[in-house]
């Protein structure tokens, strides 16, 4: 645990902070949560335009082939409205996890 290490003079020198090599304990778990959220953010946001870029080049065909929801193409609704809900959910989920992590570490300390 990082905060114990700090009180131990032998380990005083280790002050490394690196997102890709997080310190054991709190930071490693925190970074795991961050990676999870970032993945869910990136895939959902940029996955749709990348998918559309590869599969849909012809307006007439696209609009007759894609599924519809609320009277508009599903991808249209997804980008214009659903993703904002998804962002809210992601922040909610992230906060719950960070709250849990923080309180468990503060208790241990």
């Amino acid at each position: 645990m990082p905060h114990r290490n700090l009180q131990n003079p032998e380990n005083m020198e280790d002050l490394r902070i690196n997102f890709f090599r997080p310190r054991a304990g709190f930071m490693r778990k925190e970074v795991t949560i961050i990676w999870l959220t970032l993945a869910a953010w990136g895939v959902m946001t940029f996955g749709m335009p990348i998918h559309l870029a590869f599969t849909h080049n012809d307006p007439a065909r696209t609009l007759s082939e894609v599924p519809y929801i609320f009277g508009i193409p599903a991808y249209f609704w997804y980008s214009g409205q659903f993703l904002i809900l998804w962002f809210i959910f992601l922040c909610f989920f992230f906060n719950i996890l960070i709250d849990w992590l923080g309180s468990s570490y503060r208790r241990r300390r």
């Binding site: 959220t37 970032l38 953010w41 993703l83 962002f87 992601l90 922040c91 992230f94």
Partner: peptide
């Protein structure tokens, strides 16, 4: 729209 809402996720998380 997505840039100006999704940016807050990035800010919060990172």
């Amino acid at each position: 729209i997505l840039g100006w809402t999704g940016g807050y996720v990035l800010l919060l998380v990172l």
